[in-house]
Computed example of a mutant assay.
Amino acid sequence: MPRTATALTSWCRAIKSALEESGVDSEQLFRESGLQPEALKDANARYPVEKTIRLWRLAVEATGDEAFGLRVSRHIRQTTFHALGYSLLASATLDKAFERLIRYFRIVTEAYELDWHRESQSFVFLIGVDGHSHRPTHEAIDAFAAVAVRLCRALYGESFACERVELERPPPDNADFWIRALRGPVQFGARRNAVHIGVDIAQAPLENANPDLAVMNDEIVRRYLAEHTQASIVDRVHSLLVESLPNGEPGQQAVADSLHMSLRSLQRRLAEENTAYQQVLNDARRELALAHVANARYSLSEIAYLVGFADSSSFSRAFKRWTGESPSQYRKART
């Protein structure tokens, strides 16, 4: 039976604020959509996506505003994305921020299929739709694209501009709203919803990057996903490894015990997700190592301990396999 897609209530809090700004009775529309407004007070609560789409439609009808999605985007806050919002703001580059957004966006909603890839001299942020979900409104897509641009401005600076934006929606009566909000030329009636960002901008080091803060909030995201959504076994194992590595590498049996399953069940479920314990362990170590090495506060011997290696030489060999550089070379190039 297909799972029911959900979304953090915080996204609907932005819709509520935009409705009230427009003089519309938001509580009435919430109830007509089958949503309980009281849930907005719970930062961890989630709404069924089917009902949030109904809210979007009712909101656009009530306001008569073709740019309602753009207005909603102005009410999105750092906390709208839970701990992911803090991870994004601490990312080293826009490239890393979007990679993080793709990896953990399930904390916000499972309704979208996102992608971030390079096309020639641009990176493209693609906003697709989960095939199991009801299709979002054009206004919801507008809001999401505008939020992505606002994130780039917050990280890169006010000078940020997109190369172009593609939207499937039909041309609006006044395209100027979209051009201003999306900071670049907009193609309406396109075959996809995509934001194009220049490679140089996407890979430029960000002034406020904080690798430790990013990793710390990534872990909060993984814990939330494990507790509140249908988290994959990879996410759950990864979360346990990040917690355990500073105390030494945990064995597979210890991880299986922590997840209340047999070792054979753990291995089988990881295989079903096309991976294995050693691969998840390597990924967790690599993620922690890259964050810590970029922070000069830690010595390389301390980092070796923090990511579960018995000595610095073993850590250095592994790090060179991951990056093609020694830890000291990697640090020197980024500080």
Rank of each mutant, 00 (worst) to 15 (best):
P2T: 03
A5F: 07
T6Q: 09
L8A: 02
S10K: 05
S10P: 05
R13F: 03
I15R: 00
K16E: 03
K16L: 03
L19D: 00
L19K: 00
E20S: 08
E27F: 07
S33C: 06
L35F: 11
P37H: 05
P37R: 02
A39Q: 10
N44H: 14
A45Q: 03
R46M: 05
P48Y: 09
K51T: 06
T52N: 10
L55W: 03
A59K: 02
G64I: 14
D65S: 11
E66Y: 07
A67V: 11
A67Q: 05
F68L: 09
G69W: 02
G69V: 10
S73N: 05
S91V: 07
D95M: 03
L101E: 02
I102P: 02
Y104P: 00
E110K: 04
L114S: 09
W116G: 01
S120H: 14
S122G: 05
F125G: 00
L126D: 10
I127N: 06
H132G: 15
H132Y: 15
S133M: 05
R135D: 08
E139R: 03
A145V: 11
V149R: 00
V149S: 01
L151S: 01
C152Y: 04
C152H: 04
A154S: 05
Y156K: 11
E158H: 12
S159C: 15
P172V: 05
L182Q: 01
P185R: 13
P185N: 12
P185K: 12
G189E: 12
I197V: 13
G198T: 09
V199C: 11
V199S: 08
I201H: 08
A202D: 02
A202M: 04
L206D: 04
A214D: 11
V215H: 10
V215W: 04
D218I: 01
I220G: 09
R223W: 08
R223A: 10
Y224E: 04
L225W: 08
A226Q: 06
A226M: 11
E227Q: 15
H228Q: 15
I233M: 03
V234N: 02
R236D: 02
L240M: 07
L240S: 06
G248D: 14
G248I: 13
Q252K: 09
Q253G: 14
V255R: 00
A256D: 01
L259R: 04
L259T: 10
S262I: 08
R264V: 10
R264H: 13
L266S: 02
R269W: 06
L270Y: 01
A271H: 13
E272I: 12
E273A: 08
A276E: 15
Q279P: 08
V280F: 02
L281D: 03
N282A: 15
D283L: 04
R285Y: 04
R286F: 03
E287A: 15
E302C: 10
A304T: 11
F309Y: 13
A310C: 14
D311M: 06
S313T: 15
S316H: 04
F319N: 03
Y330T: 07
Y330F: 14
R331C: 05
R334C: 04
R334E: 07
